[in-house]
Design a protein around this nucleic acid. Structure first.
Lengths: 334, 334
DNA sequence: CTTGATAAATGAACCGGTTCATTTTATGTT
DNA sequence: AACATAAAATGAACCGGTTCATTTATCAAG
């Protein structure tokens, strides 16, 4: 392995000059700059970045902790993070935590041990979550929820849910079912809040039996649809807390012979790509995933570079997209 | 920042002993091990991993170059890579190349500069691709195609395409359209080969006008469907080179009033999650994305650790999944 | 041709671990 | 108790960059 000393010898200069030629070429004479270049070329010298990072004590790396990369929403957020990080000369270390808090600890250790400069956490903060914040660890929570105790980027989940449900009510729906995420999930909590606010503001009484707990995955949507189908007094619309369950619910209802939206309206949350492909296309809430990623990365870099010291919260606007899966309430002929 | 020397002083031992206590505790006396532990706890010492990596000259990191993480297939492959890497104590550096070969060069530089030990490339190798292999750079191509000049993991694309098309022919279809990827894409080439082989083996003449070039994205599927729809002698089945275009084509045909599969059969490639959700569900080829990722990582680690020196090729079995979007050919009533 | 000021180059020290030849301590044997 | 041997501990050197106090070169003005 050729080192900077080899280059120095080859060029007939000192190591200090070589180093400066690489980092501050304007402070080296033209003549010597050429010599350095020639020597580097001749020896095919590649500076050892580990040595650089070690000496300068900056990893130029951020860790992104993601519960599951094979989730399109997260993948898009990461994409946004990557583009900002790359532009700033930072590397992105991927931390697939598989929802394990042990693994999260491992990744946080990376910044404690100077391997990375900061962390972006893609899973929402849970109460009593002792993981973050920690002294000396710069952290940002992307896709977070209300009340996160460190810097965070999110949309107004409650407001979005409120908007969706109000729309359904305005379309004449009175019995509006919910397929929620896990009750313990903070997003579930925020979105449920919006649902309840919407009912209340429109003077509709809350019926607990209309809420079926899912887990944000396909099969829970199928199973929830089944339960709704067999219900005595079936809801005329179902607010699903993500698109995956919404698409599953549609499939579930269709297989039972219901028509969407004529017999039952369905709404989702996230606006995954597929949501505009499915038949019928899905009414849903779009989160600017890529932008959330970009903003998170920008906020983290600002903290790392000392431009910002206190925690901040950034709330992105969401977009409510009305497509084919919802329509006005009509008295059904059974 | 507390260093190993601080710990040594606190414990009344030498740095060498501390270092050994951390890496080879069995070679340190019990008594001193306890002292070390106490000192570390007291000082809250975290070893500087950058220094470790620098000294030992092993990054324990692999770079994964991906053209686009927000693509579910890639995301799954990455997920597989991550799980293997994590288990082996390796970190995964994410390299979103956005299809730019400049960015690929940047990421390859990371292994040349000792920042990473190897590279997994998720985009297929193109002819005259001077990027890899390079001296001293361990590389594996996941999701590759025939004739990749370095270690690679892939499925038999040609064979899979052959199987799909043969199935359609056996169902009585004679005019089988193709929505291909970009002609320059190696996967397109391999799958096209399979299509041609299937036709030939069944004695059907190739009609060039039945091949419409797409780009693997949704809109190209829509546009191709439009072209097929207006064709004089429309095909009775269309082989799409990925699911996204297949789903788009279905939507395109449905919007024109065609029924699937009664009026036209559609097949995809990849078996994205959605493909079992769409109506009708899509007949397609499943690639074991996660396993491809795992295998790629295993192969790379074997190379890095010197267990394997020559290039290898691993071909995974694919799975042909027949769903609702295909049926036997029937004479249509226009 | 000095002189002074500025720009450029030098090279030793340093970052915080690991390594290994050497010394010290512990263990076992007769 | 004396000795051989093995186990444990030591600490200086090292990895390959960067940094900075110091030295040397450059150039304009007197």
């Amino acid at each position: 392995m050729t080192t900077i000393r080899d280059v120095a010898k080859e060029a007939g200069l000192s190591t200090g000059t070589i180093s400066k030629a690489l980092s501050h070429p304007e402070r080296v004479s033209k003549k010597n700059l050429e010599k350095v270049e020639a020597a580097i070329l001749k020896l095919n010298y590649k500076p050892n970045m580990l040595a650089q990072k070690f000496r300068s004590n900056t990893a130029n790396t951020i860790v992104v902790m993601v519960p599951d990369i094979a989730n399109l929403f997260f993948a898009k957020v990461i994409s946004g993070i990557e583009s900002v990080a790359q532009r700033a000369g930072y590397n992105v270390l991927l931390g697939d935590t598989r929802d394990s808090s042990n693994k999260e600890k491992d990744f946080i250790r990376m910044v404690e041990t100077r391997l990375a400069d900061g962390v972006i956490n893609l899973r929402p903060y849970k109460e009593n979550d002792s993981l973050l914040p920690k002294a000396g660890v710069f952290a940002v929570s992307a896709s977070s929820c209300e009340g996160t105790p460190y810097s965070s980027v999110r949309i107004d989940n409650a407001g979005a849910a409120n908007k969706v449900v109000r729309h359904l009510i305005q379309q004449g729906h009175k019995r509006i079912g919910v397929i929620s995420g896990l009750k313990t999930n903070p997003h579930t909590r925020d979105r449920m809040k919006g649902y309840l606010q919407a009912l209340e503001s429109q003077g509709i009484e809350f019926d607990e039996s209309l809420v079926i707990e899912g887990d944000f995955n396909y099969w829970s949507g199928i199973s929830a649809a089944e339960q709704f189908y067999h219900m005595e007094n079936r809801p005329s619309a179902v607010f699903c807390m993500n698109d995956e369950m919404a698409i599953a619910a549609m499939k579930g209802f269709i297989d039972k012979g219901l028509r969407i939206p004529q017999d039952i309206s369905i709404t989702g949350f996230d606006d995954m790509d597929v949501s505009k492909y499915v038949v019928p296309t899905l009414t849903t809430v779009a989160q600017p995933a890529e932008k959330i990623g970009e903003k998170s990365a920008e906020m983290l870099l600002d903290m790392i570079q000392g431009k910002v010291t206190e925690n901040k919260e950034y709330v992105f606007p969401y977009e409510f997209i009305i497509r084919e899966s919802t329509s006005a309430f009509t008295e059904k002929t059974k």
